[in-house]
């Protein structure tokens, strides 16, 4: 009887220990994900260094569900760069290519016009009402790297109701 109680006791303490170690390792995973994300923000200088392509306006280069790595270097933006930009009043940033650029004498301020590779028209209609050009502060970053398909994870997480219900 005493022997049985002892082993039950040690088993229970093992369970508690295991639960603790699981909690710690989960904490480490969450913390390291946060470290990587914040580290990327620091290194790339872009406030969202990794974005998921949601629309097909850059097909066949970028498809829905692909991942882009952004960089916000000191180099000025030039025609042909693929930039991610925010438009006032639109919640989701847009990834398109710069087709026109005017850089001011002296101040270096830029006027930028973008277009999606597979769109027939440029983006003037996507911009805010009355806005003809993008300025530097609309730009979130410049796409430098590409990884296919991985973004489907987040698209499924955010758009499929069942998965959202289970995990979020």
């Amino acid at each position: 009887m005493g022997l049985f109680g002892d082993s039950l006791h040690s088993l229970r303490s093992l369970e508690i220990r295991q639960a603790f170690s699981q909690a710690v390792s989960l904490g480490i995973i969450v913390a390291s994900a946060l470290i990587i994300w914040k580290g990327l923000i620091c290194v790339t200088g872009s406030e969202s260094p990794v974005v998921v392509v949601l629309s097909g306006s850059m097909e066949p280069g970028f498809k829905r569900g692909d991942i882009l790595f952004l960089h916000m270097s000191k180099d000025p933006i030039r025609a042909g760069d693929i930039v991610v930009y925010n438009v006032d009043g639109r919640p989701i940033p847009i990834v398109h290519r710069v087709i026109k650029l005017h850089e001011r004498q002296g101040t270096g301020e830029v006027d930028i016009l973008t277009k999606g590779d597979s769109n027939p028209k440029d983006d003037k209609l996507l911009y805010a009402r009355g806005q003809l050009w993008l300025q530097q502060d609309h730009i979130l970053g410049r796409a430098v790297g590409f990884l296919p398909y991985v973004g489907w994870v987040t698209i499924i997480m955010t758009e499929m109701p069942i998965v959202k219900f289970r995990f979020g």
Partner: peptide, 16 residues
Amino acid sequence: PKNALNQISLWDHIIP
């Protein structure tokens, strides 16, 4: 005189 650099794309093409 106004702009230090003007870049205007005239034509583009995707080579598959």
